[in-house]
């Protein structure tokens, strides 16, 4: 049985025709199912658990990057096959998964090409695409083996999982970080100076890792899949092949 989790923003009138077209196409493919509308107050995890208990085998998220992050940050613990039906702007993860935005995504879902995905785990919740800590006085230790600090006190940290990160540098060549390579990639960028309009950064350092501990002398802001929180100490781990997902042939990994 298929369960479709519609994001709140899809209630808007401009998406009405797209939704109708998608629902018709899903019926044509014989993969139509139960529709649930997500709200900010609804806990995605308990909703997914409930539907799985009722017999749902495939959970499809309908929306954009925020929907994807919101559902999977808590819901990735459910033992079901996950799919994604991207609609509207802010859909970068769909491109990584090889899923076209809009009605064409129905065909990918009907083919059910499924692969296990590695996801990140930070302080009791999952993150799927990216974790970001804006410049702060932090210290980092990797895999219980080595620690990293910078001459300049403030450092910015980005941890990439599903979204690839491409760092273009004319002097040293180009670096591409790949999702789903069995490691998480951390980019550390010390802040050299802070002018009135612009912050000056040093070129980033890159560390692939499986476990990382970030500690701040004072609480620091952390943004995981678009969700902000304040933390003093975080442990980031890789949950290998935690999630089974329907992907397209043109995926980036």
């Amino acid at each position: 049985m298929y369960v479709y989790l519609y994001d709140e923003f899809l209630k808007r009138k401009k998406y009405e025709s797209t939704i109708k077209e998608i629902e018709t196409r899903l019926t044509d493919f014989g993969i139509a199912g139960k529709i649930l509308r997500l709200q900010k107050s609804i806990n995605a995890h308990s909703t997914i658990e409930e539907e799985i208990a009722k017999g749902a085998k495939t959970i499809i998220m309908v929306g954009n990057d925020n929907t994807f992050g919101h559902v999977l940050s808590r819901g990735a613990v459910g033992k079901a096959l996950f799919g994604f039906l991207p609609i509207g702007p802010e859909n970068t993860i769909a491109d990584v998964l090889g899923i076209p935005v809009g009605v064409e995504a129905c065909e990918i879902l009907s083919r059910r090409r499924k692969i296990p995905l590695d996801i990140g785990w930070v302080n009791n919740r999952y993150f799927v695409s990216q974790l970001h800590i804006p410049p702060h006085d932090i210290s980092v230790s990797y895999d219980d083996m080595f620690s990293v600090s910078a001459r300049y006190k403030k450092m910015e940290l980005v941890v990439c999982n599903l979204q690839p990160f491409f760092w273009k540098n004319s002097k040293a060549g180009d670096y591409t970080v790949h999702p789903q390579d069995g490691k998480l990639e951390a980019f550390l960028r010390p802040m050299k100076k802070k002018h009135v309009f612009k912050e000056v950064y040093e070129e980033p350092s890159i560390f692939p890792f499986e476990e990382m501990v970030v500690t701040g002398k004072t609480p620091f802001v952390m943004v995981t899949d678009g969700k902000r929180s304040k933390e003093k100490k975080i442990t980031i781990r890789l949950a290998k092949k935690r999630l089974e997902m329907i992907v397209g042939r043109k995926r980036r990994f």
């Binding site: 083996m145 080595f146 990293v148 910078a150 001459r151 670096y175 980033p204």
Partner: peptide, 17 residues
């Protein structure tokens, strides 16, 4: 392409593997 890069102002201490 995947590499570990230690930037110019970075200091790494321990078993760097």
């Amino acid at each position: 392409d995947l590499e570990t890069v230690v930037g110019p102002s970075m200091q790494v201490e321990g078993d760097f593997v």
